[in-house]
């Protein structure tokens, strides 16, 4: 009864597909409009929160003088290099410990102990070790990304269907074939969970590391702008981080959907 009436209500409110598409945008646009009005009437002081148009102008300015692209390049390089190192090691250890009991006994409890240290707590130590150079940021990003990829890869390998492994052996597959045709694809959904989780940690770590100590990158751009009270550029930096995070996640999801197209759960609705 309630379901029926709700469907009826929605049906009446959303007569067309266009309406359905535009509806989610109404609230954000309204907030943007209110923000603009509040900034222009002086309700919001400019050094607290500049108007959306001022932020757009600042974005245009830093984009035009090339500063933005240089900083994005530097930040993206740090992010993805750190991700590749940490994620690669996490994948290798996850696979090794999932496949070999010896390897697991040897390394897993050590890794679990290290995992309990919040990696951002190491920042003072890392600065002592590496100074504020590139290694410090790569180290922190790699360390942060390592654990979600490691744990999810290990879990993925362990949860591969035993019955499929038995079938593969009974049908005479070589160990190499068993890895590539059974273990790896079986663990892939779980590995993707680790990758996407790792991507989130990657940006978070980079933001913290760049904000605390850097001479280039988006975090540096934000901290530099803060010193000159350029609130508009600070807001631009925050938005760029958000956009990069969203972009990375979208790419990961696209990859996930392509690689896992056999799984009905990942087929686009």
């Amino acid at each position: 009864m309630t379901r029926l009436s709700r469907r009826h209500l929605l049906g009446a409110a959303l007569p067309t597909l266009v309406m359905k598409r535009t509806l989610p945008w109404i609230v954000p646009l309204l907030i943007l409009l209110l923000w603009q009005v509040a900034a222009q009437t002086g309700l919001l002081r400019e050094n607290v929160m500049p108007a959306p148009t001022a932020v757009a102008a600042a974005l245009w300015k830093v984009a035009a003088n090339g500063e933005l692209w240089r900083d994005i390049r530097v930040s993206a390089w740090r992010a993805f290099t750190g991700f590749a190192i940490g994620g690669g090691l996490g994948f290798v250890f996850g696979m090794a410990n999932g496949l070999s009991g010896l390897s697991e006994k040897l390394t897993d409890s050590t890794l679990q102990m290290v995992r309990n240290i919040p990696h951002l707590a190491l920042i003072p130590l890392v600065i002592l070790w590496f100074g504020i150079g590139e290694q410090a940021k790569l180290f922190l990003v790699a360390l942060g990304v390592f654990f979600p990829v490691y744990i999810n890869t290990l879990h993925g390998v362990r949860s591969v269907d035993r019955q499929l492994l038995e079938m593969a052996r009974a049908y005479g597959m070589s160990n190499q074939a068993i890895f590539w045709r059974v273990v790896f694809p079986g663990a892939l959904p779980s590995i993707f969970v680790g990758l996407r989780y790792g991507l989130g940690i990657m940006w978070l770590t980079l933001i913290v590391a760049e904000t605390i100590s850097a001479t280039s990158g988006i975090g540096f751009m934000a901290m530099n702008a803060r010193e000159f009270m350029m609130t508009d550029v600070v807001v631009v930096s925050i938005l760029i981080y958000a956009a990069l995070g969203k972009l990375a996640d979208t790419v990961a999801r696209l990859l996930e959907r392509t690689c896992l197209s056999w799984n009905p759960a990942y087929v686009e609705a």
Binding site: L164, Y171, M173, W262, N263
Partner: peptide, 19 residues
């Protein structure tokens, strides 16, 4: 149970028998 590899298409699953 059929024990088919869910990530391989039907023909590839049959080809598993040709290992």
């Amino acid at each position: 149970e059929p024990r088919l590899l869910p990530w391989q298409r039907v023909a590839a699953n049959v080809a598993v028998g040709l290992s």
